[in-house]
Computed example of a mutant assay.
Amino acid sequence: MNLALKGILYSLVAGLATTLGALPFMAMKKGISRRTLDILLGFAAGVMLAATAFSLVVPSIELGGPLRFVIGFTLGAIFVDIMDKLAPHEHLIKGYEGPLEHSKVSKIWLFVIAITLHNFPEGMAVGVGAFTTEALVIAMAIGVQNIPEGAAVMASLVGAGYKPTRALRISFLTGMVEVVGGLLGAILISVVRPLLPYAMAFAGGAMLFVISDEVVPETHSGGFERASTYSLIFGFIVMALLDNILG
């Protein structure tokens, strides 16, 4: 299979896992408890953390050496930081972030923008990862963490008063953001193959920034830090084992 097409298809499957996580909540009439939400997001953070370390950082260094890794990793973190400051967005728990002037943007679109900022580097990781031996592992990692993330998004939207059908459509769209990231990443590496170690490190830096700046603080702000931490550890273990088995 053409490697670029492989990256796009893998990112599509990983993105659809968000909908898979959301589907069980179609019958819900209210949201889930804060403890359950923190556990779901903690697990997703653990999977992302292991995927970043084992499937992006290590291959990037092996392919391009320490300098290319440092450059790409730093640029990825800076990119998400800048977008986080410039783009108005609404988090599940933390609430609004970004420029002060956002009254013309509906809350639901602010929320979609926030998920977009998170999911784009994940899709990019899958797209560029298709050009490495870690292709299946990266796609599996992103797909696995998308399941609890999709559940959290769906349950939060239903809890905020959205009808289940509309909440499911929004969850689906947030997953499709990863296809865009995968498409751009796959095309980029197809055209300029030497950028592969930079691109893998870039995706890793962006994902680590999201974990540290967004996911962990949110899961540690509701009084269920210990449950969230153990869930993160469990997610890390699951992904580390998957990487060992599939890698």
Rank of each mutant, 00 (worst) to 15 (best):
M1Y: 08
L3S: 11
L3C: 06
L3P: 00
L9K: 03
Y10R: 07
S11L: 01
A14S: 10
A14H: 04
G15N: 02
T19I: 10
L20S: 08
L20D: 01
L23F: 12
M26D: 04
K30F: 02
G31R: 07
R35Y: 00
T36K: 15
L40H: 15
M48L: 10
A53S: 12
F54N: 13
S60F: 03
G65A: 08
G65K: 01
P66Q: 08
L67M: 09
R68Y: 10
R68E: 13
R68T: 14
I71V: 15
G72L: 07
A77R: 05
I78N: 08
M83I: 14
P88T: 00
H91M: 15
I93K: 05
Y96Q: 12
E97H: 15
E97V: 15
E101P: 02
H102D: 08
S103Y: 07
S103A: 14
K104N: 13
K104C: 04
S106T: 15
K107P: 11
I108Q: 09
I115C: 13
L117V: 06
E122R: 08
G123Q: 02
A125T: 11
F131E: 00
T132M: 00
A135V: 04
G143N: 03
Q145K: 11
Q145L: 11
E149F: 02
A151G: 14
A152C: 03
V153G: 01
V158G: 10
V158S: 03
A160P: 02
G161V: 03
Y162N: 11
P164C: 00
R166E: 13
A167Y: 08
A167V: 07
F172I: 13
L173T: 13
L173E: 10
T174N: 12
V177P: 06
V177H: 05
V179Q: 08
L183G: 02
L183H: 10
L188S: 14
L188Y: 10
S190M: 02
V192L: 13
R193C: 03
L196G: 03
P197F: 04
P197D: 01
Y198W: 11
A199V: 04
A201R: 06
G204P: 01
A206Y: 06
M207F: 00
I211Y: 01
E214G: 01
V215E: 03
P217L: 09
H220K: 14
S221L: 04
F224S: 08
F224G: 04
E225R: 15
T229L: 13
T229W: 12
S231E: 06
S231K: 14
L232D: 03
I233Q: 09
I237D: 06
V238D: 06
M239W: 04
D243V: 05
N244G: 15
N244I: 14
